[in-house]
Amino acid sequence: MTRTYRRPGQDKRKRNIVIGVAVAALVGGGLAVGTGLSSASTFCDGLDERIRENQQFMAQQRANPNSQTEAILANRQAVIDLINVQKAQGGCGGAQAQAPAAKPTTTAPAAKPTTAAPAAKPTTAAPAAPAAPAAPAGNGQVVCPGSTVTLSGEGGAPAASSGTHPVGTVLRVRNLDNNKSITVTVTSVSGSCVLLNNAAFEEVREPGKFLIRRAVIERVG
């Protein structure tokens, strides 16, 4: 019978090698999980920051209301709703909604009975007049006259979302305050005539502004 003799310490070295490989695998797995969690957290934090920016903008509009405040607030709330959809799809947890308590202050339903006299109607129709001078921006059909334009918060190449025009519609948006324009395709649905995504809005915005008050929107193609 032949016996195999092992040198002292040989088994111990093998055990150390096996343990070292197992520890390396555990550390590598931990780093992969940690990196994934960090990326997800950064994505969700960015969406939360965009919601806070829109809410701050809405608060400023409520503090300084004008004839277009109601439309502006509706547009910004649609932006927040879209970002909350992105949060839900990305597994970011609870949605942040705009507090509705401030809206009654802008609608002021109690004031209508006191201004029910026919003489009050011309004063309410006046805001429609500034929106009428929609200077022709091209050869397209002007749509949604008087609508303000803001951003949807969506990333990617320049595009638009709309609750009036179906996906695939080509729209041209011109900012009359700086005469900049952009032609985009509707790729998603929103609650406004047109919302520009981040890339498209950057092409026509004025520095520091998140709203185009005087815009011409055309359907082209």
Results as ranks from 00 to 15, higher is better:
72 I>V: 15
20 G>T: 01
118 P>C: 07
61 Q>M: 13
99 A>W: 02
65 P>L: 10
104 P>A: 15
53 E>A: 14
138 G>D: 11
126 A>D: 04
84 N>F: 05
30 G>M: 01
25 A>F: 02
122 P>F: 06
126 A>I: 04
92 C>W: 05
11 D>W: 09
13 R>W: 11
56 Q>R: 12
72 I>T: 12
100 P>Q: 14
26 L>Y: 00
87 K>C: 02
116 A>V: 05
105 T>G: 07
59 A>C: 09
59 A>N: 10
135 A>E: 15
7 R>V: 15
2 T>M: 10
139 N>E: 14
3 R>G: 03
34 G>K: 02
119 A>I: 09
74 A>N: 05
39 S>R: 00
75 N>Y: 09
57 F>A: 13
55 Q>T: 09
119 A>F: 08
50 R>L: 08
102 A>E: 05
44 C>D: 01
9 G>A: 11
38 S>A: 06
94 G>P: 02
79 V>A: 14
105 T>V: 07
128 A>K: 09
30 G>W: 03
37 L>V: 12
30 G>N: 07
12 K>D: 15
91 G>L: 07
5 Y>Q: 03
129 A>P: 06
68 Q>W: 12
136 P>F: 08
29 G>M: 05
104 P>T: 15
112 K>D: 00
130 P>R: 03
89 Q>T: 14
103 K>I: 13
125 A>N: 02
104 P>I: 15
13 R>C: 13
17 I>G: 07
93 G>A: 11
90 G>A: 14
106 T>H: 03
105 T>E: 08
82 L>P: 13
78 A>D: 08
95 A>V: 05
11 D>I: 06
23 V>I: 15
74 A>Y: 04
55 Q>I: 15
133 P>K: 02
92 C>V: 01
43 F>L: 13
84 N>G: 13
9 G>K: 07
61 Q>D: 01
79 V>M: 06
35 T>C: 10
93 G>E: 00
39 S>A: 08
